[in-house]
Simulated assay, not measured.
Amino acid sequence: MTRLSPLKSILLTLLVVVVLAALYFTAREYRVIERLWFNWHVFWQSTDAQALGLDEFEVVVEGKVIEGLDDVSALSYDPQRKTLFTVTNKHPELVELSLDGQVLRRIRLTGFGDAEAVEYISPGTYVISDEHGQRLIKVQVDDTTVALDARQAEQLTLGVGAGGNSGFEGLAYDNQGQRLFVAKERKPVQIIEVRGFPRANADPTNILEVTSSRQRDAGLFVRDLSSLQFDERSGHLLALSDESRQILELDTQGRPVANVSLSKGSMGLERSVPQAEGIAMGDDGTLYVVSEPNLFYAFRKK
């Protein structure tokens, strides 16, 4: 039997170490273990756990260009106005859209930094997130609003992990539980719960509580988070991932129970959604998605 020289043995060992390290970091980056665990869990669970029936949705509006916009980010449904709201960050604006993706009005934003998410809270009240500054900013909007200045608004700064382009990408609000869910994009992927902001009144004794769940975050097998949507009827949370091209359904315990792909062929899509940045759900259960730079999608159950 031919023996390897000491040098060749060292080189072979180094090669094995490099390959194993590459496999480890690839598995960690793409959340392979978490995905395998999710698939095993879904295989054995009852279909009742998948409250929203994501696999039953089909695209009805695909990749419609939102005229006049070039960097949409996030999406929120206003049940009073029966419209959608999004934000832009290159030229900061809060934009109101019709349910078929038409621009209804544009509200100029001043001092909001890198606005990445918007969420409806109550009639005329919204929260906008500043990704770089990790700020949550409460704003009031009515039919006459044409501009908003962050300096005149109630704000909350959360120094959670890394800033920069790994900050707050998505918001969702649980009206009954009075919880604001905040999606941290990456490093690590994280969902934060905030109670006590925005304040419902001027009560100075208002208690602020910020929590997160390591167990829930560890089960998120997506590479990033770009938007959130809370379903009041089931108590489930939808998490949108741009890089993984997935919509993930989390149950009331924060466990993934279902998912659907935003790639070509899924839900009747003729093309993959290129960069999904916002998700919202209407009163009738229609799912709306926006993708940078200015694409609009709508999905309804078959």
Rank of each mutant, 00 (worst) to 15 (best):
G219Y: 01
I128F: 03
S263H: 08
R105I: 01
I66T: 08
S73N: 06
R223S: 11
Q229M: 11
I128Y: 04
T13L: 15
V289R: 00
Q155R: 15
P293H: 07
P6L: 04
S226H: 03
Q155G: 06
L208W: 10
E56G: 15
P123K: 03
F230L: 05
T252E: 11
T211F: 02
V61M: 12
T86G: 06
A147M: 12
D224V: 05
S212E: 15
P188G: 11
E277F: 05
N259H: 12
R199F: 09
V257C: 04
F43W: 14
S244A: 08
E67C: 08
V146W: 06
T252W: 09
I10Y: 13
A202S: 14
L240Y: 03
T86E: 06
L23V: 13
Q134E: 14
V60I: 15
I192T: 01
N294S: 14
L238S: 01
D217T: 01
W37N: 13
N39P: 06
L54S: 03
L20A: 14
A51Q: 11
V141W: 06
H132M: 13
L158S: 03
R214G: 15
T88V: 08
S213K: 02
E116I: 00
S213L: 04
S241F: 03
D242P: 00
T145Y: 04
P123H: 03
S122P: 02
A162Y: 08
A200P: 09
Q80G: 15
A276L: 02
P6V: 07
E249R: 01
V18G: 10
E232C: 02
G219V: 00
S266I: 00
Q246P: 00
S263M: 12
H236K: 09
E154L: 06
T13P: 03
R216A: 11
H132L: 14
N259R: 10
L158P: 06
Q50L: 00
E93P: 06
S46M: 00
R81Q: 14
V103D: 10
V42Y: 05
V118P: 01
D174Y: 10
